[in-house]
Amino acid sequence: MILDKIDKQILNTLQENGKTTNSKLSKIVGISAPATLERVKRLELAGVISHFTAVIDPEKIGFSIMAVVNIGLSLSSLSSVAAIKEKFIELDEVIQCYQIAGANDFVLKVVAKDIKAYGRFMNMKLTQIAGIQVIKSSFIIDNVKDKKIFFLDLDEEYGV
């Protein structure tokens, strides 16, 4: 699937505001509302748009601690990576999880209500996962940039 200029305008607009109505979106991109809706559905079916969601400020709902946690696995546990991934998925405190190449094996973004809650998470959940050898936590002091938008150049060709 090649994204044309209209597809890219739709994606740029919806990334800025996922609540944009189909009527307004059709005016922005210059095609009829039914044609716009069909394009959005096609982008969803192709997996280009994975989902729509509300972005919540964690501090406003009581999560004052945010940490980046680097995880190193023991060499003997490399065969059980799938099971370890499943454990990370099950942990409510883990809001992002990336398997990486380099000095560590995983990077987690973790939220907690306070430092004591983070301690309980570390001691009662994370350290209980078999195969984890190294845990290094870094606490986020300030969110300088948290980009969730991928600007699509209307003149550049993208294939998906």
Results as ranks from 00 to 15, higher is better:
Ala103Met: 12
Lys116Ala: 08
Lys41Ile: 07
Ile100Cys: 06
Met124Asp: 14
Tyr158Glu: 03
Ser137Tyr: 00
Ile56His: 11
Val107Asp: 05
Thr53Leu: 11
Ser64Lys: 14
Gly131Glu: 09
Val144Gln: 08
Ser77Tyr: 10
Glu16Leu: 08
Leu45Asn: 15
Val110Ile: 06
Gly18Arg: 03
Ser64Ile: 11
Tyr98Gly: 09
Val68Asp: 15
Ile56Ser: 08
Leu37Ala: 12
Asn104Leu: 09
Val94Glu: 05
Gln96Met: 14
Ile95Ala: 06
Glu44Lys: 12
Ser50Glu: 15
Ile2Ala: 05
Gln9Thr: 02
Cys97Glu: 14
Lys85Met: 13
Ser50Lys: 15
Gln99Leu: 14
Asp153Ala: 04
Lys60Trp: 01
Gln99Phe: 14
Glu38Lys: 15
Ala117Asn: 02
Ser80Leu: 12
Ser26Gly: 09
Arg39Ile: 02
Glu90Phe: 06
Leu45Asp: 13
Glu38Tyr: 12
Lys145Trp: 05
Thr13His: 01
His51Ala: 13
Tyr98Val: 07
Ala103Glu: 15
Asn104Asp: 13
Ser76Thr: 09
Ser32Tyr: 10
Gln133Trp: 03
Ser79Arg: 15
Glu38Trp: 10
Val134Cys: 03
Thr127Val: 13
Leu14Cys: 00
Asp4Arg: 00
Asp146Phe: 07
Asn22Phe: 13
Val160Pro: 03
Ser77Met: 09
Asn143Ile: 11
Leu45Tyr: 09
Thr13Ala: 06
Ala54Tyr: 12
Met1Ser: 09
Cys97Thr: 12
Leu14Phe: 01
Phe63Tyr: 15
Asp57Asn: 14
Asn123Leu: 06
Ile71Thr: 10
Ile89Phe: 13
Lys109Met: 15
Asp7Val: 04
Cys97Ile: 14
Lys125Phe: 00
Asn17Glu: 02
Asn104Ala: 12
Gly119Val: 01
Ser77Glu: 07
Phe106Met: 09
Lys125Leu: 05
Ser26Asp: 10
Glu44Gly: 04
Ile6Gln: 01
Asp92Gly: 08
Ile28Asp: 04
Ile95Tyr: 07
Val55Asp: 07
Ala112Met: 01
Ala83Met: 13
Ala35Lys: 10
Lys87Met: 12
Asp142Phe: 12
Asp105Trp: 06
Arg42Pro: 00
Val107Met: 12
Leu91Thr: 06
Gly62Val: 07
Glu38Pro: 02
Asn12Thr: 00
Leu45Gly: 09
Ala67Trp: 03
Asp142Val: 11
Ile140Asp: 07
Asp153Gln: 05
Ala112His: 01
Leu154His: 04
Ala117Glu: 03
Ser137Glu: 06
Ile65Ala: 03
Ala112Glu: 01
Leu14Pro: 01
Asn12Ala: 00
Thr127Asp: 11
Leu126Thr: 03
Met1Cys: 04
Val144Trp: 05
Ile149Asn: 04
Gln133Phe: 07
Gly47Asp: 10
Ile141Gly: 10
Glu16Ala: 05
Val81Tyr: 10
Leu3His: 00
Val94Arg: 06
Gly30Tyr: 04
Lys148Arg: 12
Glu90Ile: 06
Ile61Pro: 06
Lys145Thr: 09
Ala103Pro: 08
Asn70Arg: 13
Phe121Leu: 02
Ala82Gln: 15
Phe63Ser: 05
Val48Ile: 14
Val111Gly: 00
Ser138Gln: 14
Tyr118Ser: 00
Gly159Met: 14
